[in-house]
Design a protein around this nucleic acid. Structure first.
Length: 398
RNA sequence: UGGGGCGUGGCCAAGUGGUAAGGCACCGGGUUUUGGUCCCGGGAUCGUAGGUUCGAAUCCUGCCGCCCCAG
């Protein structure tokens, strides 16, 4: 009987995950990962309730229950990564980091060491064995060498890319790119419920880890999960969705950062070059952002760029501002789940959770040319590439 | 202190006699396992003091403030 350790957060999804595995005959152990337990000014960390809920469900299911304390590692690998990223002017994605470093590395390793054969989580994603004929190779297009599109790249983009590349290089990037895994075994696929699919956050999971991971909810829709949980009388069946940074919760990111970073007021400059207001720290703002600028009158302003060194944020009322619509994305720290795509491979990409897929061409390991421009592609966020339902991999936007 | 114009919620801005549109910002809520986007909801008696009128933000007068022309 396979021994499976299930990450139980105290929510419906992971609760039902555990229940399903028990029913499927696995030897299930529930594990609550204690990653964050600190209150913040004006915000109480719900870890006690979450732990209690997870434990309650474990008791209902009659499975062993454990607590793994990863607070130290979570702080280092996820929170510090996030804080450092913001300091350099990018907009990091802590949840992707959390999956890479904590759930599918630390937790996996700890579980295996503890005697588990596999781990499982309540993610909406699917894992399936790949055929011998690797589905990874999409038909190669015109057999030309990857051509740089220097001409088509807007000057602004080039400038910005360089700027951020420099910034990143000066820090210690915490996202480590996995060595290319051998083709084979398992691929990561979008969930059946395209509305809840969470593969965007999982593209940095290694194929090695995928061999030992189960996603029992991959074939279910959210309403079904709710119904099934209710049918089984799980204590968390009606629990409200939790949102925000995983394990930390719905904290105001600005309030959170202010606990760790000192900032100074700076200028808000519009598309005409006029200073139209003052912000309280450029690191708090991200590309495409509209609210929080406190500048009113006429049309809404959107952040189109920022200069972290000068502490200036650039805004525009022009919805078609060229700085807001990129046709090409430059990546750093690429990570491919099974195999890197060949040059000029046609794939689909998304640059944020739940965003529609956009047809694109991977011209080389770190360049994606988009068929249609994407709004507010943001440095620090990830671009994830799909081949149909299969997650090919992706990288961090530079 | 010669002439002209303006002053509506934090900002922009409709409304010129019938009892305050709309947008932005902000706040609250919703969507969302990051940030962001998006969606819904919320606020003013109209610079001020009088007058005319059944009734005024809308007409008249004084005052205050601002802008332009006045070279």
């Amino acid at each position: 009987m396979k021994k499976v350790y299930v990450g139980m957060s105290g929510g419906v999804d992971s609760s039902l995950t555990a229940a399903l595995l028990v029913e499927q005959g696995y030897d299930v152990t529930g594990v609550y990962m204690k990653n964050w337990a600190q209150d913040l000014p004006g915000w109480a960390c719900p870890w006690r309730e979450d732990l209690a809920d997870a434990k309650r469900v474990a008791v209902q299911l009659g499975i062993p229950f454990k607590i793994y304390d990863f607070q130290k590692e979570y702080k280092q690998k996820v929170v510090d990564y996030m804080i450092e990223g913001y300091k350099t002017g990018i907009t990091p994605n802590p949840d992707i980091m959390c999956n890479q470093e904590i759930k599918f590395k630390l937790f996996l390793d700890a579980a295996l060491e503890d005697g588990a054969d596999m781990i499982a989580t309540g993610h909406y994603a699917r894992r399936m064995p790949l055929d011998d004929s690797p589905a990874s190779s999409a038909e190669p297009t015109a057999p030309r060498v990857s051509q740089r599109s220097a001409s088509s790249a807007p000057p602004v983009l080039g400038h910005r890319a360089d700027k951020h590349a420099t910034l990143r290089a000066s820090t210690h990037p915490r996202i480590s790119s996995e060595p290319e895994a051998p083709v084979g075994q398992f691929g990561l696929f979008m969930a059946e419920d395209k509305n809840k699919d969470q593969t965007y956050f999982l593209y940095r999971v290694s194929s090695k880890a995928l061999k030992q991971v189960l996603f029992p909810l991959g074939e279910l829709t959210k309403p079904e999960v709710r119904a099934e949980a209710k049918k089984r009388g799980l204590a968390t069946a009606e629990k409200k969705e939790s949102m925000g940074i995983c394990f930390v919760g719905k904290v105001d990111i600005k309030d959170f950062l202010q606990q760790y970073v000192d900032t100074k007021p700076g200028a808000i400059v519009n598309q005409k070059g006029e200073e139209i207001g003052e912000h309280d720290g450029a690191i708090f703002y991200t590309i495409g952002q509209r609210h929080g600028l406190d500048v009113g009158g006429g049309l809404p302003y959107y952040v189109v760029d920022k200069d972290i060194d000068k502490n200036i944020i650039y805004v525009s009322t022009d919805l078609d501002d060229e700085r807001l619509w990129l046709k090409e994305i430059k990546l750093t720290q690429p990570h491919w789940i099974n195999k890197a795509p060949k040059s000029d491979t046609k794939l689909q990409v998304r640059t944020r959770h739940r965003a529609p897929l956009v047809n694109s061409t991977v011209t080389d390991a770190n360049t994606i040319k988009l068929d249609d421009p994407i709004r507010a592609v943001t440095p620090g966020q990830s671009a994830v590439l799909y081949d149909g339902d299969r997650v090919v991999g992706g990288g961090v936007v530079v």
